[in-house]
Each structure stands twice: as structure tokens, then as C-alpha cells.
Nucleic acid binder design. Structure first.
Lengths: 168, 168
DNA sequence: ACAAACTTTCAATATATTTTGAAAGTTTAA
DNA sequence: TTAAACTTTCAAAATATATTGAAAGTTTGT
């Protein structure tokens, strides 16, 4: 397989995986493109590479920046904005975990905390089942949250070291 | 808050979380409904509870069964099929991890394995960047895969015990 | 064999999400 | 100030995804 074809495959695979995990396909593809490109690209470059419109490219890049996955670069003497992706896999995972925790896990945890408080007759199966499910899920969410928090603070080597030792 | 309202909130929250993670909203809602319901329900019950069509209820229940989250129950002397959800949170997490690994992680890993093999001139920045990103992501995917595999084999107590000790 | 009681299918429809592109907005240099 | 070079916006259009519901299929009891 030649490099251009390989890049293409990577971009497609990353886009598909993203869309299966609730991340816009185009966003994942732009990210993939920047991951396999050594130098920073302009909006124009990206539009052309992926055959997408200017508006789409612009919004997608802003999204990627809000996720902390892509940054702007300014070249001396040029007015155009260049974009590049952090290529450290650990940083990417950490950043995605951080954002999803904030955007999705936290709101759900807030609701679960309220639902756990709902009072009722523990002899009533309707109530007992509700309470048990909600309490259990809340516990699991708290565990996931705690794990993520630790992961976010952790240094790369420490984390991978632990994972490797733990699951050898 | 009263029980019916609380159930409603739970179903909505679960549906929203599901849709953010690439799981059909209705599927997550049916699952939520079954999680907070002590007894098994018929298609009819579910259609009415969630105001969805027969076709939708049927397909969603099949999906949930294919994910191993819901099972059929037959009541003596009745022809109707009843459905109920496994309410063990750990089993749910394990089952979801198992399916997503099979459906999404494995296909991507297969592609990554091929892309890692692509040869090129390591002096060429285009190639070097591509190769580094793909290799790193492949390593991370392998780690995730290994971790999931262990998790899937693990008993509840062992796993939670480890997590707690590790991230105390 | 029949028909009642169910379940499944799938083309049509509805809904939600993504993308476009041209106009409006902004910045910079002369 | 002006205009060229660039970025942003957003209503409309395109696309993708989910839902409906009635017809077809299946199973069971008589």
C-alpha cells in the first residue's frame, strides 16, 4: 500500500470510529488528516483535501479547538491561519476523556444524585427496583468519574506503567 | 419528587446519554424503562409507556437482546412475550464493553495493523508523521483491547477491588 | 384446516443532523 | 479609507437516521 492510499484509509477509519462514538464524522476526519500531516494546514488545504465547504471546515476546526485537540498557528508575514493537531496519543485520549466527562458525565451525575434521593416505600417493588438501579448506576458513575479524574492528573508513564503491570 | 416523575427523568437522562455515545435514544430509553421496572413487560406495555410504534418497539427489543442487555420471558399459559433487563450494573457495563469491542474496536484494529505495515522513507516527514501517529494509536488500541479483555474475564469483586486500590 | 393471537418486516414518512455557500464581518497594509 | 485577504455566520438544502403502521408471517389451540 502506498502512503496516500494509507492516509486515506486512516482518515476513513478514524471518521467511522468517531461517528460510532457520537463524534461528527467530518470532525474526526479533519483530526485524522492533521494527525498524519507533519506541517500545519490552512482552512483551504483542509477544504481541498477532504472536499468539504469553507463553512464546514471553519466550524469543524473551531470544534476541534474547543476539544483541545487542534491549535492555531500563525506564520510570520502571513495572514492566513494554520492549524495543527497535538500528535501525542496520550494527550488526545486525556483531552477527549476530560471533555466528555465535563460535557456528558457530569450532567448525568447531577440527575442521578437527585434521583437517588427520591423517597418511597421500600416494600413497594416499583420503588425498590427504581432505587436499586439508580443507586447502582450512580455508584458506577462515581467510580468512572473518580478513575477519570485520576487519569487526567496522571503522568503518561505512571499511567501506562500501571496499566501494563495491572493487566499483564 | 414522586416516583413516576423520577422514572421519567431517569428514562430521559439515560436516553440522552445513550444518544451522545452513539446508542439510539429509543433503545436506551427502553432499556431504562426495563431497568426501573420490577416485572417483565410486553411489547404492548413498552409501546404505551414510551409512546412508540409496534415496529419500533419490536426492533429495539431485538437490538437490546443482541446486545445481551434484555431477555425474553415466557409466562405459563400465555402466548405473549415478556421482556426484562438484567439489572446488575456490572453485567451491563461488561456487556456493552464486550459488544463495542467486537463491533467497533476490532474492525479499526484490523485496519491499523495494516497501516502500521506500510513502508516508506523514514527521512520523509510525510511518511514519518503518518507512521508515528498510526503506530502510537495502534499501541493505544492494543492496550485498550487488552484491558477490556481482562475486564471481560474478570469477576466483579476482583475488578472493583483493583480499581479501588489502584485509584484510591 | 381454520382463525385468533401474536410477532416481524419494510417501504414510506418524519425527524435530526450535517453541510453548503454566499453574504456579512474582520483585520491588515498601504 | 480603502480594498484585498482572510474568517465567520447561518438560513436553506442535502443527507443520514429513526419511526411508523399496515400487511405479511408465524404459532398455537380447537
Amino acid at each position: 500500500m502506498e502512503l496516500p492510499e494509507a492516509k486515506q484509509k486512516f482518515i476513513e477509519a478514524w471518521g467511522k470510529l468517531g461517528s460510532e462514538w457520537g463524534i461528527n464524522r467530518t470532525m474526526a476526519q479533519v483530526h485524522a488528516l492533521l494527525l498524519v500531516t507533519p506541517d500545519a494546514l490552512t482552512t483551504e488545504d483542509i477544504m481541498e483535501s477532504l472536499s468539504i465547504s469553507r463553512g464546514n471546515a471553519n466550524m469543524t476546526l473551531r470544534d476541534l479547538m474547543s476539544w483541545g485537540l487542534v491549535e492555531k498557528q500563525h506564520k510570520a508575514g502571513e495572514r492566513k491561519e494554520y492549524f495543527f493537531a497535538d500528535k501525542n496519543t496520550w494527550n488526545i485520549a486525556r483531552q477527549v476523556a476530560k471533555e466528555r466527562r465535563k460535557r456528558e458525565l457530569e450532567p448525568v451525575m447531577k440527575i442521578l444524585d437527585e434521583l437517588v434521593k427520591v423517597k418511597g416505600d421500600s416494600k413497594d417493588p416499583e420503588y425498590a427496583t427504581f432505587n436499586k438501579s439508580v443507586t447502582d448506576i450512580n455508584k458506577m458513575a462515581k467510580n468512572v468519574d473518580r478513575t477519570l479524574e485520576t487519569m487526567l492528573k496522571a503522568e503518561e508513564s505512571w499511567f501506562w506503567g500501571s496499566i501494563f503491570k495491572m493487566f499483564k
